[in-house]
Amino acid sequence: MASTTPIDTPPAPPVPRPSPRSTGRMGDKIFLGLSRGSGILLLVIMASIAVFLSYRSAIAISENEGNFLTTFDWNPAGDPPVFGIAVLLFGTVVSSIIAMVIAVPIAVGIALFISHYAPRKLAAPIAYVVDLLAAVPSIVYGIWGALVLVPYLEGLNLWLDDFFGWTYLFDKTEIGIPRSLFTVGILLAIMILPIVTSVSREVFLQVPKMNEEAALALGATRWEVIRLSVLPFGRSGIISASMLGLGRALGETMAVATVLSPSFLISLHVLNPGGGTFAQNIAAKFGEADAFGRDALIASGLVLFVLTLLVNGAARLIIARRKEYSGANA
């Protein structure tokens, strides 16, 4: 399947890189200086942020009496100060995974509908509305989640508990309204839907027409066309779209802080209220934290930073590897 590629664009002839040397005119020199200066400035800013974060984190971690990686507690103001990211890492990853499991299939479905099924008149408005979802500020999602989603999910939770309690995952062992990691996952799924959808859609639209027509000529149905030509072509695009969505889900703050009932326990019963995420914990604790408490929160932020960096790096790696036949390399 993947061998049907070299139809579309031959690799563009490399554009000759203009010599960095200026022609000697004044304007040229000024422009060169300005652009070089902004480039350097950016690097300096990034480096100083990194140094600042690491320095403050080092202060916090060096005085931490608990294990930064395994302690199930967050009490930098205590005597002795004890804090650890285990619960936060767990909550962040679990809620993001729930979000991905829900959002990616739906997003791919929407993208396929827009690119291959919907009549042209319908496709544009739907695409527009999906993009619009991305423009909603996250606190609005949080408000909506707390006011509408949480009361609504009470029934679904009972149902899941009744019929799928045996899966352990959906066994609700604690009472309480569903301000749980599961609810957060659903909310995050809605929030990352637009980005996953629009990137996937762009990729699907770039499937070479000739691939599809070839499949049709062989007698393939619409579904078979998608299965044989569109999905293989778009696979790396879907993956990178998912990674972009994952990046957003990992760092989401206000929506999670509004919906979740945080606690410092790890439980795979995702319907139980409790748990926490990095960003939510920082938002919740920053106000009352003293100077040392803030250093501790910065340390947890650094871990989130690294986590997000890894996810983005993985996404880029995948895109780069499949660059030659993916449209998502923009």
């Binding site: 606190i139 009470e154 938002a283 106000g287």
Partner: peptide, 27 residues
């Protein structure tokens, strides 16, 4: 019953949310 709960939630949840907003106002 569920609908009633939802209405009640809508009326009062604004406060829950305002609590979260306070956090952001701590700049």
């Amino acid at each position: 019953l569920q609908r009633k709960n939802r209405l009640r939630a809508t009326a009062l949840g604004a406060l829950a949310v305002s609590g979260a907003l306070v956090l952001t106002a701590c700049g």
